[in-house]
Simulated scan of single mutants.
Amino acid sequence: MSEQGALFDPPSELPPQAGRHSAAIERSVKAAAEGDALLDLDAALVSVARAGMYALDCAERMPKPAYPLAQTITPVRETIEALFGTPQSRAAGAEEELKQLMEEMNNATDASAEVRNTEESGA
């Protein structure tokens, strides 16, 4: 984990109404932080995502949760997409990197072949 890892550590104690949504965002934030996919700049978005997921947990416990859930889901989803992307956008990024590597390999000659360090590229 990077130096900014402390910015993305879960709260020392989750609020009493925290549930499955709060737990899910904590798993996602932890995975992204461990993969160095979060920057210091992302701390505010992480906070908003945590608040939104907590709001979803609280809304589910209401006697009539439909309206608060409907009002909360879209902005929370947009925040999560801003932080982590979507499965499709992450796959597209990986495909683009693979395509670039294949083009480099196809265009390389013995004298100009470049050795890439996969640890530096995040692969």
Rank of each mutant, 00 (worst) to 15 (best):
9 D>S: 11
103 E>W: 07
118 T>F: 10
40 D>P: 12
50 R>F: 06
2 S>H: 07
41 L>M: 09
76 V>P: 03
19 G>M: 01
4 Q>N: 14
73 I>S: 13
75 P>I: 04
113 A>N: 04
26 E>I: 05
59 A>N: 03
69 L>W: 11
11 P>K: 02
25 I>L: 01
68 P>L: 02
74 T>D: 14
121 S>D: 10
81 E>S: 12
24 A>V: 00
84 F>L: 02
111 A>G: 11
71 Q>C: 13
39 L>F: 09
113 A>D: 03
22 S>I: 00
70 A>V: 10
1 M>E: 10
114 E>S: 12
9 D>Q: 15
102 M>N: 07
37 A>F: 13
60 E>A: 12
34 E>I: 02
51 A>M: 14
62 M>V: 06
45 L>S: 08
1 M>A: 09
33 A>T: 11
7 L>M: 04
14 L>E: 10
76 V>G: 04
69 L>M: 09
91 A>I: 00
117 N>C: 13
16 P>L: 15
101 L>E: 06
95 E>Y: 14
116 R>F: 12
3 E>C: 05
106 N>P: 02
85 G>V: 01
61 R>W: 02
87 P>G: 02
10 P>N: 02
37 A>S: 15
88 Q>A: 14
95 E>P: 05
63 P>H: 05
96 E>S: 07
51 A>L: 07
52 G>A: 05
68 P>E: 04
18 A>W: 01
50 R>S: 05
49 A>W: 01
114 E>C: 11
49 A>M: 02
73 I>R: 09
98 L>V: 08
13 E>F: 05
65 P>T: 05
45 L>I: 06
112 S>K: 09
112 S>C: 04
69 L>E: 07
77 R>I: 06
94 A>K: 12
87 P>S: 02
106 N>F: 14
16 P>A: 11
64 K>F: 10
26 E>P: 04
104 E>N: 08
39 L>P: 05
103 E>N: 13
38 L>S: 03
31 A>K: 13
85 G>R: 03
29 V>G: 02
53 M>A: 10
87 P>T: 00
13 E>P: 00
7 L>F: 08
67 Y>K: 13
31 A>C: 03
72 T>A: 07
97 E>Q: 13
119 E>K: 10
95 E>I: 12
104 E>Y: 08
83 L>F: 12
87 P>N: 01
97 E>F: 15
9 D>H: 08
113 A>F: 10
92 A>F: 08
67 Y>H: 15
52 G>H: 04
22 S>K: 00
61 R>L: 09
121 S>R: 08
102 M>P: 02
116 R>S: 07
54 Y>Q: 09
9 D>L: 06
